[in-house]
């Protein structure tokens, strides 16, 4: 029974290795949560550790005393994610559907026309000048929504997925006198739900995690999206202090900047992590739909 013993050893090693990788993946999350719960003076003396000597919720108290600013950037991010994902999903799926219709003769030309932008682009600078000098989108929420509205790879995945919808269905609807847009809305979209869910998730995640467009186009602090807000908190102490409640009297205590930073990280990341178990399914599906076949 050599092979079965060998198999046992192998499974044990594989299990251990996978466990270690999984733990490594969670480890930083753990460190940040623990760090945010460590009293500031302990951080100053001992640094961040796996387990603090005492716990303190002071950093969170400071964060929630006057949560207006972080709530505001939450609102900005939720808004642009919602609006951006909805519009993007709609126009991309509509275009993807048409581009695989066999009777649409320009399909190859349009596909190449769109795909060429993946191969070649003008670079950051001309695009930036277009956005700011010609379209005047500085300090405009559209500057956070438009840049990620059309992703060519999602369009192509969508187009490939739409091929699985039987053409006979569309034909018979046409014979019944339904218009093209009506067919798309009432027949194609419901059948494309799996792809819509998965690709929608990817689009939403891109919007949610974007900070670059905030940095490029937003000067008004009240319009910062969440991730850029967090970036500013982490990189500038003055910004960090201004984010904390001014009403709390710290006395002669130092400002708890270290634990406060981490508490804000937790506040900014927490909800998406809580949402995560529910969307993981679509995520995995999305990867396998679009995998390799980009």
């Amino acid at each position: 029974m050599i092979s079965s013993r060998g198999r046992k050893i192998f499974v044990a090693i594989a299990g251990a290795a996978v466990t270690i990788v999984a733990l490594l993946c969670i480890f930083p999350f753990w460190m940040v949560v623990i760090g945010s719960l460590t009293p500031e003076n302990e951080i100053y003396v001992r640094g961040y550790s796996l387990w603090p000597q005492t716990f303190s919720t002071e950093a969170y108290k400071l964060a929630f005393e006057d949560p207006g600013k972080i709530l505001r950037s939450y609102l900005v991010t939720v808004g642009i994610t919602g609006a951006g994902t909805a519009v993007s999903l709609f126009i991309v799926s509509m275009c993807g559907y048409v581009l695989q219709r066999p009777d649409f003769k320009s399909r190859n030309f349009f596909t190449m026309f769109v795909f060429f932008t993946v191969l070649f682009n003008g670079g950051l600078v001309p695009w930036y000048i277009l956005m700011t000098n010609y379209l005047h989108l500085k300090d405009n929420y559209l500057a956070l929504i438009l840049p990620m509205m059309v992703n060519v790879f999602y369009l192509i995945i969508m187009k490939n997925f739409m091929r699985s919808i039987p053409g006979a269905l569309i034909e018979s609807a046409k014979i019944d006198g339904a218009g093209e847009f009506y067919i798309f809305l009432r027949i194609v979209l419901p059948l494309a739900k799996p792809a819509l869910a998965s690709i929608g998730m990817f689009i939403a995640l891109n919007y949610w995690n974007d900070w670059r467009n905030g940095m490029l186009f937003m000067q008004d602090e009240t319009m910062y999206p969440l991730q850029y807000y967090l970036y500013r908190l982490l990189s500038s102490l003055d910004f960090l202090k201004s984010a904390a409640a001014s009403t709390i009297d710290l006395g002669d205590q130092v400002f708890p900047s270290e634990s406060f930073k981490l508490a804000m990280t937790v506040v900014a990341t927490g909800p998406i992590i809580l949402l995560y178990p529910f969307v993981q399914k679509y995520f995995v599906k999305g990867i396998t739909i679009g995998a390799v076949k980009g």
Partner: peptide, 21 residues
């Protein structure tokens, strides 16, 4: 599930992790 967690967060959050460590 644990291995997917890092995919979900932005690099801003990762930079907080790095600072923390």
């Amino acid at each position: 599930g644990a291995m997917f967690l890092p995919t979900f967060i932005s690099w801003v959050v990762v930079s907080a992790f790095v600072y923390n460590i």
